[in-house]
Design a protein around this nucleic acid. Structure first.
Lengths: 220, 220
DNA sequence: CGGCCAGTTGACGTCTTTCAACTTTGGTGG
DNA sequence: CCACCAAAGTTGAAAGACGTCAACTGGCCG
């Protein structure tokens, strides 16, 4: 938690102050934190496990907006403007989150201005990410989108490593992140396996060469 | 300008105060206000004409993020967190914009808190819109996306009217907004013309029945 | 009136989805 | 500990949507 971007640059005393205002919530696998279109009440941070943010289409098809691991903030926008949550949040596995209600947050902003700056920066980063993904969806073929989806799932900051193991993510999940079907995901992964770029297993993708994947994501 | 969401709810005196801090800029058709990835300096509002926000892919393909008419705010996120502009802004026709540099804005926020609330709300709305469009791109076929693109171009608030005339937008533009090609746009518009939903002309789309279009956008 | 830009339309190819059948994996309860 | 079941993954065949290329038309401005 200490290294969450939410608390970045805060002196220990202020960080404690902020944390003391949080509520904690524990979630079983699959438990829903909030539904899309509900009134937005709080900003959340994952401390343990993983939370999956999804948008549902009118036809009932799901799209995965983001998969949040420990330290990651979500529903930041909602907390700022207090409109409706733009997605549903549910635990992808047994998880723990901290949450700050809007009122508490407003007050903390006054006492700890750096906190507000952090929230704005996080919200900005998310808005940028959505813009990029929107462009990707509009212009890039499935394999490249899938490569990017995998790269986004790789735990950050693994100096020197050129491989990565992604677990607890089904091909259905990957399909919803890349905006395609599980069939196409399976085919593409099979191809990559044939050229030795990845190995796959039930709920598991082992990226053998992040570099290779990056090339697929960016290149030609 | 008075009815821009930026100034919503501000007493006349405060609105004047805010406006007095703005710089104005005039743009010829095609003139670029700022480029994607430049350091973000200012929040902008269109007062006249139209500004086109685009993202460029690595391969040089363009995607239109938004087309802003009078009163509309853009680059709000950038002004808050001061990172890079996430898109390029250029005048789609001779235009005029007001702009507030980050420092001026911060100061105004202190004097006019409602202004900050407005900016946060606007940024939130844009973030939500991008989320929705991302989902659309991931799940919806071209005709529906095109219908939505047209509906977004219809001047707001025309009580009672069931038709709308959209001018100064080429099919190439529509293609970039809907994430497709001008060929597909032409074909789809031809179909709609055949059933009497629209009529088209050079740089012109006359929507005969907004209701019909809405059905296409939402339905089945 | 000529050239240019916007738009149209057909033919074709390809990527992706859809549907169906089948295999593999891992967990659970007997 | 094993057998079994459900969930996850694989793969082929076929259809469909969409993009690409090329040729053609038509309106508009100088």
């Amino acid at each position: 938690m200490a290294q969450s971007p939410l608390l970045e640059g805060l002196p220990a005393a202020e960080a404690r102050r902020v944390l003391s205002e949080a509520r904690e919530r524990q979630l079983d696998k699959g438990e829903v934190l909030f539904h899309q279109d509900e009134a937005a009440e709080a900003l959340h941070v994952v401390t343990e496990g993983r939370v999956r943010l999804t948008q549902l289409t009118a036809e009932g098809q799901e799209v995965v907006v983001r998969l949040c691991g420990p330290g990651e903030v979500f529903a930041g926008i909602a907390a700022l403007d207090g409109k409706a949550y733009p997605f549903t949040a549910a635990a992808a596995e047994p998880s723990r989150v901290l949450l700050w209600r809007r009122a508490a947050l407003q007050e903390l902003f006054r006492a700890v201005p750096r906190l507000q700056a952090n929230v704005l920066e996080i919200v900005g980063a998310h808005a940028r990410e959505m813009l990029d993904r929107f462009r990707e969806m509009a212009t890039e073929p499935v394999p490249r989108r899938l490569a990017r989806a995998l790269l986004r799932l790789v735990p950050r900051e693994r100096p020197g490593q050129d491989d990565a193991l992604i677990v607890g993510v089904t091909q259905q999940d990957l399909a919803e992140m890349a905006g395609t079907t599980l069939y196409t995901v399976s085919r593409v992964l099979s191809e990559w396996e044939a050229i030795g770029a990845v190995t796959t297993g039930r709920g598991r993708v082992h990226v053998r060469s992040l570099g290779r994947l990056q090339e697929i994501a960016e290149a030609r």
